[in-house]
């Protein structure tokens, strides 16, 4: 049960504004999700892969982490520390080794991608956004989420967005009713969710379908047949973002499009302060209909 915001910029000149705009949108959705907040930002493409990791004891864990990883990989690594998160840039082919390295150190990998960075923590959205300096971040598109936990724990790993594939992320408002069964199916296929959260199952489902060769539209279509319960999903990829609501569609969703951007909010309040919103095309996404924007 939650609030979702999403922003996909069509106008290059707005890129430096992305974090600022998304932060304002996120904070308006605090009432819908006071437990935790998270954001996925698709920023500048790195030379290599960006791996976002999290630690509850960043001062000790991140001290010298880049050097240690460099030594382990035998390759050049850079690191940017942001509060409890660190974004490490690693060579394209080093993801598996780097994941194993992080696992051995007890660090949590939040997401990996050439453009995507993920920041999420327990707490009010305004505090989470401030801790990570989201306002200062630039990028092409981003997705944010405020969480009111239903059945799984209020933890950092239980916060959204969930990333289960490179440059992929997913946020969810609703409650799935067949996620336990789907978790077993996905685990057999090699896409095991790491948490007990129903949303991560949906993220893994999308990743599994993409891995099988489906495009994102097909994967989102698949959620309508294979996932039971109530959902509005907003999904990010390197080049775009997509939206789908379940056929009953009783969780709220509103979208706006101008020449400059496409925006998503659980409520209109999230969109109310966007530039040019008065003249935007504003509509509610239809049930059981996949929407997708790609650059």
């Amino acid at each position: 049960m939650c609030g979702i915001v999403g922003l996909f910029l069509k106008k290059e000149a707005l890129r430096p504004q992305l974090g600022n705009m998304l932060t304002d949108m996120l904070i308006t959705m605090t009432d819908r999700g006071p437990d935790s907040a998270g954001i996925a930002i698709y920023g500048d493409e790195a030379e290599g892969l960006k791996m976002t990791v999290q630690s509850d004891t960043p001062q000790t864990e991140f001290d010298g982490l880049d050097g240690a990883l460099e030594a382990a990989l035998g390759r050049k690594v850079t690191m940017k520390v942001v509060d409890t998160h660190a974004v490490l840039t690693i060579p394209d082919d080093a993801e598996d080794d780097a994941r194993a390295f992080m696992k051995a150190r007890g660090l949590r990998v939040m997401g990996v991608g050439s453009a995507m960075e993920i920041f999420k923590e327990i707490g009010l959205p305004k505090d989470v956004a401030a801790r990570f300096g989201i306002r200062q971040m630039s990028g092409s598109h981003g997705i944010g989420h405020t969480r009111m936990a239903t059945e799984s724990a209020v933890t950092t790993m239980g916060a959204h967005p969930f990333s289960t594939g490179d440059d992929q992320c997913l946020v969810h408002n609703g409650s799935l009713s067949n996620h336990n069964q789907m978790r077993r199916v996905l685990t057999q296929k090699g896409f095991a969710p790491q948490t007990q959260n129903d949303t991560e199952v949906a993220a893994c489902y999308i990743s599994s379908r993409l891995a099988e060769g489906a495009n994102l539209g097909e994967a989102l279509e698949g959620t309508l047949d294979d996932l039971d319960g109530f959902f509005t999903f907003v999904v990010g990829t390197k080049n775009g973002f997509g939206v789908v609501r379940d056929p009953i569609a009783c969780k709220p969703a509103v979208m706006a499009e101008t020449e400059d951007y496409v925006a998503f909010g659980s409520e209109y309040r999230a969109l109310a302060n966007l530039p040019g919103i008065e003249a935007a095309r504003v509509w509610e996404p239809e049930p059981a209909t996949v929407y997708f924007w790609e650059r």
Partner: peptide
């Protein structure tokens, strides 16, 4: 009477 000039949600 309630009049909405624009769209109404659910």
């Amino acid at each position: 009477t309630v009049v909405i000039d624009g769209d109404a949600s659910q």
